[in-house]
Design a protein around this nucleic acid. Structure first.
Lengths: 131, 131, 131, 131
DNA sequence: GTGGTCTAGACCACT
DNA sequence: GTGGTCTAGACCACA
């Protein structure tokens, strides 16, 4: 698992780690059921505090992306189908991103193409995503 | 101008305000050249400190979404066309959002439709967005 | 006299005007002894308040770049030779500019060439500058 | 780190502080990678408010002169190579400074010598500046 | 009357 | 213990 953190970034480290794991699952680098490294391993590997990794894992667990078993550590899992709450959050988020992109001169077509490209790139990771 | 803030949110108030303005411009509620309320007005209206509004405005100014004229306050403007830096940031952001959506069971088609719907809703605001 | 003001700029309008006049003199667009427009004329021409022009003129007068005669209006003049005070201010200013340029990757040669180019451009204005 | 502020100056304190740091880096008093004092330390040392130091640091961060790491405070860094935007700003700035100097009786040779001297003084700080 | 700056003091998030 | 955010209230420069 190759994860690069940007200590200069505004985004908190635990959030960067959480995001990196989500993307790794999304692109198939981490398959469903696959085990994640120990909190301590990961902390040492990344040169950060174990508490920080812990926080990221707790977040991922809450969101349903991983399960944490005291005996076997953390493992990737599939979250439940998108509930209404998540859909609303997604729409809000997209409204902001799309407003910004439009104002920056990125039009509908270009935006949709970019999205399609990203889907294609993720699909190439062999992970059977919902169609 | 109807803006709702969530004081419990993790997102700083000034960032929420900044986002709200970007979306308001995107959807045409704020037209190009239109004046924004004064800092103090907005602060009172929203029940927050003027310094907080100030910070949001400074951010919007730096990003090119508004201009601040010492004589007449702030007004909406169009930022320069998207540079390479922004495009990269957008792709990273979308990669995360799309990974998340995929894992939550929202597939390619549904996602693209949602985006298209949002574009349509923005376009309905009569604001001539780049096509 | 062609002066363009940027109302969006952080630099106060009166300072922009003052700077524009200094550069105009420097490049020979305004010759020594030449009369400047009336305060009111200039104010109307530029679409700004007469008080603002007044402030710029007062500044230029204080610095010795122009003289103001109640009967004949303002006219360009040559300031006294650089006094010690000005030289110190100049050195401070240049130390900042040069530090910044160096850190931005602009080296000694390039910087000096840029300066020489600007001197050449000013000299082309036929104004006999001190050699 | 010796920084002197002029509370009577027109230049805002945060800008003076920002400038002082840039010069300190330029002259090698602050080496690349070196840590800056904490915001609170510096605030107390200078007898100003922490918010003011904060603003100066935020400015330096935006300009790429320092990085702020949540874990260890601020540290000096090298900004990216000068882009076209900066070069244009520099030329405008120099045109004004040179016009002023010329009119004050400081000629081409003297001006260039002064610049060269400043470069030499900065270089003496052992900081390997771009040649 | 506008935005810009500054203060003193508080609380929070992050590591 | 670090920086980040927010507040309430003040004064100033600008136009």
């Amino acid at each position: 698992m190759i994860i690069t953190l940007d200590f200069k970034s505004e985004t908190p480290i635990y959030a960067q780690l959480r995001n990196a794991v989500v993307v790794a699952i999304g692109r198939g680098d981490l398959k469903d059921g696959e085990k994640l490294p120990t909190i301590r391993q990961l902390a040492e590997e990344l040169g950060i505090n174990a508490m920080t990794v812990n926080k990221a894992f707790a977040m991922l667990k809450n969101e349903g992306f991983i399960t944490i078993d005291r005996r076997h550590g953390a493992a990737v899992t599939r979250p439940e189908g998108g509930n209404a709450e998540y859909r609303e959050k997604l729409e809000q988020e997209l409204t902001l991103v799309i407003s910004e992109a439009s104002l920056k001169g990125i039009g509908r077509k270009e935006f949709l193409n970019t999205c399609a490209d990203i889907f294609a790139a993720l699909a190439a990771g062999q992970h059977p995503l919902a169609e």
